[in-house]
Computed example of a mutant assay.
Amino acid sequence: MFIRAYLRASTDDQDANRARKTLQSFAADQGVRIAAFYIENASGTTVDRSELLRLLADASPGDVLLVESVDRLTRLPRPAWEQLRNQIAAVGLQVVALDLPITHAVLKPTGEDGIQEWMLKAISQMFLEFMATFARKDYDTRRERQIQGIEKAKSTGLYRGRQTDQEQRRRIQECLAKGFSVRKTADLLSCSTSTVSRFKREAAALMQSDDQLFIL
């Protein structure tokens, strides 16, 4: 059994690797080992996720797609979720989610006959469908409340938009100035490598702009 763990965080400022130890501990408790990790910062509301697509391309029938929770796999609207679900089924993957215990049975074959195994898979799929729907509902509710909150803040003159984390930027700058790599900086500050890389790009663009102004 080849277990492929998928870890996702929504934004660059979140640590997509956060759940790695949790998944490894779970696998050890089940007596299995994770053979490959696929980690990315991307929205669960789109199927255009490079690491998830790479996982699907790598997978073979009988492999397991392991996630911390169903919402790490999908927050997709219904048509997009059906598309992803069909892709998962087409390559023969079985989804195991830590927050959906009924799916854990996949990791411990019990020698059940064909009918019992079919029923277990059918029930697991039913609960997976429910959790996928709930994940999207939760996303829509959060978005609606966020929009309502912003509108209320605007009406009172309190809304200022998303503020840049100046302290994090300062610490990134210090680490890079000391010669630390992007990966080392991200590890030290518990942020994503894409956050550090974005800061480097912005800093380089600013320096280039300043140089051009000096020449002029």
Rank of each mutant, 00 (worst) to 15 (best):
M131Q: 10
F180D: 07
R49G: 09
K21D: 13
W118Q: 04
G62M: 02
Y38A: 10
P79D: 05
L65P: 06
G161A: 04
L98G: 06
S192E: 07
S190C: 09
A135H: 11
Q87Y: 03
T195P: 01
A105N: 00
E151P: 08
K154F: 01
R171I: 07
K152S: 09
S10D: 13
Q166E: 10
F127A: 12
I88C: 04
S190T: 11
D113Q: 03
L65I: 09
R160K: 13
S194K: 01
G31H: 05
D187C: 00
G92Y: 05
W81Q: 06
I39N: 02
A42H: 14
L52F: 10
L188I: 11
E68G: 01
A203C: 05
S60P: 00
F26A: 07
D71V: 09
R160P: 10
A5K: 02
I34C: 05
V47A: 12
F130K: 15
L56R: 15
A57K: 15
R75L: 01
A186L: 03
V47R: 12
E167I: 14
T11R: 12
E129R: 15
R171A: 07
D29V: 05
F37I: 08
T22Y: 00
Q212T: 07
V95I: 14
F214C: 05
A57T: 11
T185N: 05
M207L: 14
L76M: 09
